[in-house]
Amino acid sequence: MGSVGVQIVCVALGVLGMIGVIVCCAVPRWKVSSFTGSNIVTAQSSQEGLWTTCVVQSTGQQQCKNYDSLLVLPSDLQAARALTIISCMISCLSLLMLFCGADFTTCVQNEDAKPKISLVSGIGLLLAGILVIIPVSWSAHIVVRDFNNPLIIAGQKKELGACIFVGWGAGVLLLLAGGLLCCFSRPQSGSSGGTAKYYSNNASAPGKNYV
């Protein structure tokens, strides 16, 4: 089973990744206004997120509005909502399982079950990282595609918001935590039994010196 140090590092990476996913889900900074070309009006800027769209004035005032209906949202936004929420849930459950199956806790007394629990939590963190990378990459692709589209006027173009980069970072942290757990938490089946047989054979070996 993995060492205590590796598990503590995985817990830290997993917690940071989960916080990043929560921030990415809650903060409306997926798409921001682009001030390029003939668009020189900088008195206000728009910000779009998963749940709300906001208008920020140059004076610092911000007004946000929820989306009118779920049915009129684009497919990438609907998928991003579902995938980020699922990623939050899976990462939270995986971290709870990791706390139970780690060497530095006594929640589980069975030493044979601890590596299996840690392995399952590692797989969960890997899945959570993949689920958060998919929507942010999809949204980034759409933003870049629309930005390079000459048919869209400059005032309607958007740029990548901070949540896109936070989502990428959170996904990488979750993938690192899950990968380390999967590498260092592999169950070693039959290790105790093999040790017992080894000592029993050594104990009986002196009696067979005559052969």
Results as ranks from 00 to 15, higher is better:
Q7R: 14
R186G: 13
G171C: 04
A162Q: 07
W51T: 15
S94M: 04
L125Y: 03
L176Y: 03
C24W: 00
D68C: 00
D146K: 06
A196Q: 15
A154C: 02
K158I: 01
F147V: 01
I86M: 11
S45F: 08
H141L: 14
P187Q: 02
I142W: 03
A80P: 02
G207W: 14
G37V: 08
I40C: 09
Y198T: 10
C64K: 06
S87M: 05
S34T: 09
D146T: 07
D146S: 06
A43M: 12
I142H: 06
Q47S: 11
A177M: 05
S46V: 11
C100Y: 01
E159T: 12
G129F: 05
S34G: 06
G171A: 05
V4R: 14
L151P: 00
V56K: 15
A12I: 12
G194H: 11
S33H: 08
S46D: 13
L70N: 13
C182L: 08
L173F: 10
G171P: 04
G2I: 06
L126P: 01
I152H: 03
K158V: 01
A26D: 08
K116F: 11
C107L: 15
S139M: 15
T105Y: 07
G124D: 03
I152A: 02
N149T: 01
K208F: 13
K157A: 02
C25P: 00
K158D: 08
K116A: 10
L181K: 08
L73S: 06
I22F: 10
C88T: 15
S58Y: 02
A170E: 07
G207L: 15
W138V: 12
G178P: 04
E48H: 08
L13C: 15
L180E: 09
V55H: 01
V172S: 07
S121F: 04
S191R: 15
T42D: 02
N202E: 07
S189W: 13
Q188N: 12
P135Y: 06
L95K: 03
K65F: 12
S192F: 11
V143D: 04
I22W: 03
A113I: 12
I22N: 03
G194V: 03
I86K: 00
C182N: 06
G207P: 00
V72I: 07
I85V: 15
V9P: 00
G5R: 08
L180P: 08
G207F: 15
E48V: 13
V41G: 04
S94H: 05
Q156M: 11
G101R: 13
L127Q: 01
V32T: 10
I130Q: 10
C10A: 15
N148T: 08
S75Q: 13
A205G: 01
L96C: 13
I40D: 10
P150V: 06
L77E: 05
